[in-house]
């Protein structure tokens, strides 16, 4: 009886997962249908998969937007990592009177709504001639991800036993050598998942992207939105674009699963 219940619960879980994932699955499948089949009623389950949508979409210049996203997101993620890791190292390894206050200040900037600054940010970038530039979004996404990087890395640095750090000091290594030879390798998994999460958040960011770019440096989410207004009736092509847009962040996101909870709760919960 108990075994039967367990099997039923497992089947139910599988069913729930299927329903939950269905919108994404359907998007993925529709990308391989030709336009006629994409909107046919009842929906066709059996069809000749075709790569036509992807060919058309790639021919129509999606590459430029993917490139914008890649440049902006990769550079801002690297910058956020370099700045965030060093700040977290200083905060967690060296006792400072104001360490908590600094940490809470960082997190408050992450929590405050972006719409609270979007208007002046727009005006400032307009005056500097940086509207629709890569630099504008790189700066914003770096600043957006630094607090996350600081908090995540802080909780990883905390896990390192103090004696290890001390031993590097005894060997006469300078702080910097000790950091690169001993500390950094120890937190490597943490650095990687911090970087991946920063990537995902920057890749998906929409408000700054849609308000500050027009054509030259639009990212994938912005292209997605304008594609829908212009060619929203072509579901096959739209699904192909959508699949291309979400694939990087979903796949990289999956790799962060282990540290995801710790990262998103700023170390308040260990996953």
């Amino acid at each position: 009886m108990k075994k039967l219940l367990a099997v039923l619960l497992t089947i139910f879980t599988y069913l729930a997962a299927f329903i939950y994932f269905f919108p994404l699955l359907w998007m993925f499948i529709t990308g391989f249908k030709n336009e006629g089949e994409a909107v046919i009623m009842p929906p066709s389950l059996f069809f000749h998969p075709t790569l036509d949508n992807y060919k058309i979409v790639w021919g129509s210049g999606i590459g430029a937007f993917l490139g914008n996203s890649a440049i902006i997101v990769v550079i801002s993620t690297l910058l956020a990592l370099i700045l965030g890791v060093s700040a977290a190292y200083a905060l967690s390894m060296f006792r400072m009177k104001k360490a908590d206050d600094i940490l809470f200040w960082f997190i408050s900037t992450k929590m405050l709504p972006a719409v609270g600054v979007i208007i002046p940010v727009y005006i400032i970038f307009k005056k500097l001639g940086l509207l629709d530039s890569h630099l504008a979004l790189i700066l914003l996404y770096t600043a957006m991800n630094i607090p996350l990087a600081v908090w995540m890395m802080r909780s990883f640095f905390k896990d390192i036993p103090y004696e290890l750090i001390e031993s590097t000091q005894v060997d006469g290594a300078t702080g910097l050598q000790g950091f690169f030879k001993v500390t950094l390798p120890l937190v490597k998994p943490g650095v990687i998942s911090t970087g991946l999460l920063c990537f995902v958040f920057a890749w998906n960011e929409f408000l700054f992207g849609v308000s500050l770019t027009y054509t030259n440096s639009s990212t994938m989410p912005v292209f997605m939105a304008s594609f829908m207004t212009q060619e929203g009736l072509f579901w096959g092509k739209m699904s192909a674009v959508a699949t291309t847009a979400v694939l990087p962040s979903v796949i990289l996101g999956w790799f962060t699963q282990k540290q995801l909870v710790q990262g998103l709760t700023m170390g308040a919960v260990k996953g």
Binding site: Y20, F206, P221, A225, A245, V246, S249
Partner: peptide, 12 residues
């Protein structure tokens, strides 16, 4: 599978 929607960009 359950986590996937969390990583999907809001626009999509």
């Amino acid at each position: 599978i359950f986590v996937a929607p969390f990583f999907v960009m809001p626009a999509v």
